[in-house]
Amino acid sequence: MMLTKEDLQAISELINGAVSASENRIMAYIESDVKKEIRQIADGHKQLAEKMDRMEQKIDKIQD
């Protein structure tokens, strides 16, 4: 049995729809989870940098 042009077009549309749905799920995951985790890492880095600055200031005072 040979597939008609219409059959191939329908298969193509189904595949494209499945790919689009997968892309949407991936983007939703990135938007909700990955960005949140990156933000948490950045906040932690900022806190550590601020703590190091305070420690450096205390060390400078002790050295003086």
Rank of each mutant, 00 (worst) to 15 (best):
S20Q: 14
I11Q: 14
L8P: 02
Q40F: 01
S20G: 07
A42R: 15
I26T: 09
H45V: 15
I26M: 08
E56C: 02
E31V: 09
M27L: 12
G17R: 02
R54F: 04
E50Y: 05
E50V: 10
I30L: 08
A42T: 15
L14A: 14
S12E: 12
E50H: 11
H45C: 07
E31T: 11
M55I: 08
E56S: 08
H45P: 00
A21V: 07
A49R: 10
K61N: 10
I15D: 01
I11S: 06
Y29E: 06
K61R: 13
I41W: 01
K46P: 00
E50W: 06
R39W: 06
K51R: 13
M1A: 11
R54W: 04
K35Q: 12
M2C: 08
G17N: 05
L3P: 03
V19S: 01
S12F: 07
R39I: 06
D33N: 15
D53C: 03
E6S: 09
E50M: 11
M52N: 15
E13A: 10
I41E: 06
Q57H: 05
A18T: 05
A28N: 09
M27A: 07
I38P: 06
A28H: 04
L14G: 14
M52F: 09
E56H: 09
I30F: 01
G44T: 11
A10F: 06
D43T: 15
E6W: 06
D53A: 14
G17Y: 00
A18S: 11
M27T: 10
N16T: 04
D43L: 14
D7R: 00
K35T: 14
Y29M: 07
L3M: 10
A10Y: 05
Q9V: 01
S20T: 09
D43R: 15
E31D: 15
I59P: 03
N16C: 09
I26D: 01
H45E: 13
Q47D: 09
S22Q: 06
K61I: 13
N24G: 11
E6Q: 10
H45D: 09
S32R: 12
G17M: 00
Q57G: 00
M27G: 00
S22N: 08
D43F: 12
M55N: 05
E23R: 15
Y29G: 06
K36F: 05
K58D: 14
N24P: 07
L48H: 07
I11W: 03
S20D: 11
M52V: 11
I38S: 09
V34N: 01
V34I: 14
M27Q: 11
M27C: 02
Q63V: 13
D7Y: 00
K46N: 03
M52W: 07
E31F: 02
Q40S: 05
Q47I: 09
H45Q: 12
A18I: 04
Q57T: 01
S12K: 15
E56R: 13
